[in-house]
Design a protein around this nucleic acid. Structure first.
Length: 490
DNA sequence: TCTGGGGTCCTAGGACCC
DNA sequence: TCTGGGGTCCTAGGACCC
């Protein structure tokens, strides 16, 4: 039975784990066998989430969370002394910009992250409004992350200004509250030193959740260490929104069920939470409400998607302009994919209409691409079905289903003379309507008009690139067509 | 002219396969 | 010629995070 059990897990579950061995690594290489007294459902749970009978929570405060204070604004004040002590707002400065970071001086006027810049200007007209210098932020962030890695090899950056550090992987004498307090204070000083004056708020606790809550308790420039055993008392009086994953929508659903605080949440059964919030969130919240969090600190994460989007100061209505913007965005996405040696199979078009409704449309190729032209053609193709007559405020392109290789590299497209696309080959008919993409799975995936032609009304000779299963940037052929939907671009 | 940009994860339905 | 169930893949949308 045990052997059967191992085979079962080895065969089925790992489809994901083998490719993407994520949190399961907490088990530190221990091969786990299903004990005879544990049922299958419970065993699955063990394999996915970790051992339930081992201590789920760490017994020591060994997870540290560091959060740089008002990061973007602080970098600006550091680099420009005239801004020190004054309200600084970094974010979008255009007509539709929002605040990314407000300095503490600006926060006194009610300026907050995610507020529209328009609103921020009306609340604090004398603030300095800056659009941001991301190279400087990235450089400062790197200095900080390097400092964290000197303390422990296990550092998980969450963004430019935030990271978890696993102190259990650090070379410390012990993990007592006194020791981690001292280490955390030294770390804060080191961060300020290496960045030339930036301050950080730090929280330390027995889990990611507790460390993050703790770092919020004494901002800015503070340190809170939560003693093991006191976690639940700390959380009980807090509003449910302290729990990561509980935003405005979830908080409202909970409020309607009479649940406001973590203490309220503790009294609700797991089944009831699942009923209110669905499976994943219900189970997750039931655990977090009890400070039950064994998520490991993970240093390397694989990217799952790459995207570029833009919100325009005035709504777009010109389709040709939108196609041009998509082409440019696709090129940027492709460039970033190639910079990371990635390619992806699914291309997603994103639109936000004038009334803020958000749409997405996607297609999946048989093999991954990192080719800007291919991404652009697919994105423009997806746009053709959408009614944009009311105006479009946001346009974007993304690629997901990422692989760390490109099929064209493995099966060169030009060096096989008998690749089935010679001059005498039987080439499929051109599409006669505006539809330019074939169903995935057919041999020809996509055909695109060559330069000089757009879809419209007319007829003539067109150049078409055929994209096939095996060659996404396939052969180019010319055709005489008699298609009233086709017209020269000039 | 209220509401960014870059992500992650989850849900739900349909197609398809065994 | 009807009744399944499970699993995977794909698409669309939504919540959430920094």
């Amino acid at each position: 039975m045990d052997i059967l059990g191992d085979e079962f897990m080895g065969d089925r579950l790992p489809a994901r784990s083998r490719l993407n061995p994520a949190p399961s690594q907490v088990w530190r290489g221990i091969t786990m066998r299903r004990p005879v007294d544990v049922g299958w459902a419970a065993w699955l749970d063990v394999c996915v989430r970790g051992p339930p009978y081992a201590a789920r929570m760490r017994s020591e405060a060994s997870v540290l969370h560091l959060d740089l204070d008002a990061f973007f604004a602080s970098v600006e004040q550091r680099d420009k002394p005239s801004l020190r002590g004054k309200p600084v707002v970094v974010g979008g400065v255009g007509g539709r910009g929002v605040v990314a970071t407000a300095s503490y001086e600006a926060r006194r006027y009610g300026v907050r992250s995610a507020m529209s810049t328009r609103e921020a200007r009306s609340r604090c007209p004398h603030a300095a409004f800056l659009s941001g210098r991301f190279h400087a932020y990235r450089a400062a962030s790197e200095q900080v992350m390097t400092t964290l890695r000197e303390l422990s090899p296990l550092v998980e950056p969450l963004s430019l200004d935030e990271a978890f550090v696993d102190l259990a992987a650090a070379d410390l004498a012990d993990l007592s509250v006194d020791t981690v307090t001292r280490v955390a204070e030294e770390l804060r000083a080191a961060v300020t030193d290496v960045t030339g004056g930036l301050t950080a708020s730090v929280g330390v606790g027995s889990s990611k959740f507790i460390a993050k809550v703790a770092s919020d308790l004494d901002k800015p420039d503070g340190l809170v260490v939560v003693s093991p055993g006191t976690e639940r008392d700390l959380l009980r009086p807090m509003h449910v929104t302290v729990i990561p994953g509980v935003g405005p929508a979830t908080a409202e659903r909970l409020r309607r069920a009479g649940i406001h605080t973590v203490a309220d949440l503790e009294t609700v059964s797991e089944g009831e939470l699942v009923r209110i919030l669905g499976n994943a969130q219900g189970h997750g919240l039931h655990r977090l409400a009890r400070a039950d969090d064994d998520r490991p600190v993970v240093s390397e994460r694989e990217a799952k998607s790459v995207s570029v989007e833009g919100t325009y100061d005035t709504d777009l209505t010109d389709r040709r302009l939108m196609e041009g913007l998509l082409t440019r965005q696709s090129g940027a996405v492709a460039k970033r994919l190639r910079a990371h040696s990635l390619s992806g199979r699914t291309v997603t078009l994103k639109l936000r209409l004038h009334d803020f409704t958000t749409l997405s449309r996607s297609v999946t190729l048989p093999s991954p691409t990192d080719h800007g032209g291919t991404i652009a053609r697919l994105a423009r193709g997806l746009l053709t079905d959408i009614d944009t007559s009311g105006g479009v405020r946001l346009l974007g392109v993304g690629v997901s289903g990422l692989a760390d290789w490109v099929q064209e590299d493995l099966f060169g497209i030009d060096d096989d003379p008998d690749d089935g696309w010679g001059p005498d080959d039987d080439v499929p008919d051109l599409p006669t309507d505006r539809q330019r993409t074939w169903a995935p799975g057919s041999d020809v995936v996509h055909a695109t008009l060559g330069p000089g032609w757009v879809w419209g009304s007319g007829r003539g000779v067109v150049t078409v690139r055929f994209e096939t299963r095996d060659s996404p940037a396939g052969p180019v052929r010319s055709f005489a067509v008699d298609d009233p939907e086709l017209t020269p671009a000039h």
